[in-house]
Nucleic acid binder design. Structure first.
Lengths: 294, 294
DNA sequence: TCAATCATTAAAATTATTTTCATGATCTGC
DNA sequence: GCAGATCATGAAAATAATTTTAATGATTGA
């Protein structure tokens, strides 16, 4: 699967001291090598460019550039392999190289999307979509990170002409909740499911007779217990006290699913509106000399 | 899963005659290109090496060798995918069953995260992180969907004590931009890279002497051309007119990487602040009877 | 110890890539 | 429809990267 890296590892012992250094370096950080010139690599290994070229030739490569091209392909291969089986969250710790941070971040986000999808209860999801489609008004509650998710959902719903609010201010959320009716839906978003402001708002919405949906992590939590339809976004990322990255991605993923579900359910009704709002924005841009959307 | 090849195909129409020939050739036999020198390729396409290099630069590559390396990786990727039957971007159409929507959404989000990661130029990324860490002040510009991303970044930066603004109002963005200095950084976020308000704000920031970073899709676009450091989030999802779901996920993914990169770079400085802000929020909750964060 | 071989490198030669610059084409505003 | 500007293009110069050469030093086995 990775012929060159494999060969490097296998023949390592048979190599001379300098050559071994080169092999070691390539094996330890192949993805770095791809971005390096032969000079840099030689320097990093404490040897000369000439030795590096000979090294390449010894492995039946055309030369150094050829090594880079082949390595690039092998990295893509192995990463791919690892990824396709990978579903685990990785911790992000201090001062590790950028490439590791990127890798870990990717693993976490991919895992949280996959997990969220696999946790989905299709029946409940369908129910939620039906409720949202039928709602006269939709209220979205969330603070801090979850407020971002609420705002995102808000923007989408506005585009299909839904009567919808997503106040950032938690007092306004409660105020709004108390004006809901039985034909309305309230959606509470909170990773932990224990955010007081959001709980208060949802409780108020319940009192007003609105149907309720919660969007929380997959755990026993107050919001999920309160809601008529609890939905779950998974994120078990490690070291996450330092900001909830993957959880937010997972929640947005769920929001997208809800939104697309609504579009599909009410295709004839919503999609024309979406198209129109898209074209209106586009025309506005054109009239000002630019093009395309945000 | 093959961002460059995809971008080539997508932008084909916008290219000049000579450039189109190059794009055609690369698309028709990418695996040949990997073994060719720039001269050969130019000859094959009936054009000059100069045009080929410029062509590479237009697609945000370092140069011709960079194209070969990236292409090599993409070829390996796609082969791998075909073999393992992995899914890439899928269209979402009307009235298909919910389970299909969920599947397509998942495929799109996963693909856009993977693509974004594979497109990352580590060097530029590192530069961007260094700039952000060193900045006296950070300004974030974005409207509509991109405003959500800006807000998200804003929340993160605030938590580590960065002096930072992210006005939703585009006039305020320009006002803020005009007060920047040479020690500040402006980040412009826009999927298309052609949002007028955002371009104006970034131009203004440039005039003020601030360093500039753009966060756009992988294409030739105004913002990327303007910025000192252009960063790219890929999303080639089909049916994009119906809302930019995956692109936003990809951008948030990049924001997370930038943020974690900053944390790692300045571990001693930022992480204690993060921990503190986390604990302060937690204590506030506890004193009111709840627990955990949003 | 002395050849003989091998690994190694500095520097030269070669090759590849990029930049510059001049040219011609196309587009813009008058 | 015409001057001026802008853009694309390729030839050639400049630069950069890689490879080869040739000389040196180290190691090994008689």
């Amino acid at each position: 699967m990775a012929p060159i890296l494999h060969a490097l590892a296998q023949e390592q012992e048979r190599l001379s001291q300098q050559e071994r250094r080169i092999a070691d370096f390539i094996l330890s950080s192949p993805s770095e090598v791809v971005h390096m010139g032969i000079k840099e690599l030689a320097e990093q290994c404490g040897t000369s460019p000439a030795t590096v070229t000979r090294f390449c030739k010894a492995f039946h490569l055309k030369g150094y550039p050829d090594l880079k091209v082949k390595l690039s392909a092998e990295i893509a291969h192995t990463e791919m392999q690892e990824r396709s089986g990978m579903s685990s969250y990785q911790d992000i710790v201090a001062n590790n190289p950028l490439s590791q941070i990127v890798e870990a971040m990717e693993a976490n986000h991919l895992a949280s999307i996959r997990d969220t999808t696999s946790l989905l209860d299709m029946e409940r999801l369908a129910q939620a979509i039906r409720l949202l489609c039928a709602a006269d008004r939709i209220d979205l509650y969330g603070v801090a990170t979850s407020s971002i998710v609420a705002q995102d959902f808000y923007q989408k719903l506005i585009r299909i002409g839904k009567n919808c609010t997503a106040f950032a201010d938690s007092h306004m959320q409660i105020t709004s909740a108390s004006t809901l009716s039985g034909r309305d839906v309230a959606v509470a978003i909170s990773y932990s499911g224990e955010t007081l402001e959001t709980i208060d708002a949802l409780a108020c919405a319940k009192d007003s007779g609105a149907a309720t949906i919660s969007l929380t992590s997959y755990s026993s939590n107050t919001l999920a217990a309160m809601a008529d339809i609890p939905l779950f976004a998974s994120s078990l990322e490690k070291g996450m006290r330092r900001g909830d990255m993957a959880s937010r991605i997972a929640q947005l993923h769920l929001v997208d699913i809800l939104f697309m579900g609504m579009n599909s359910e009410q295709f004839g009704q919503y999609v024309p509106k979406l198209e129109q709002s898209y074209h209106n924005v586009q025309n506005y841009r054109k009239s000002r000399g630019g093009h395309f959307q945000a």
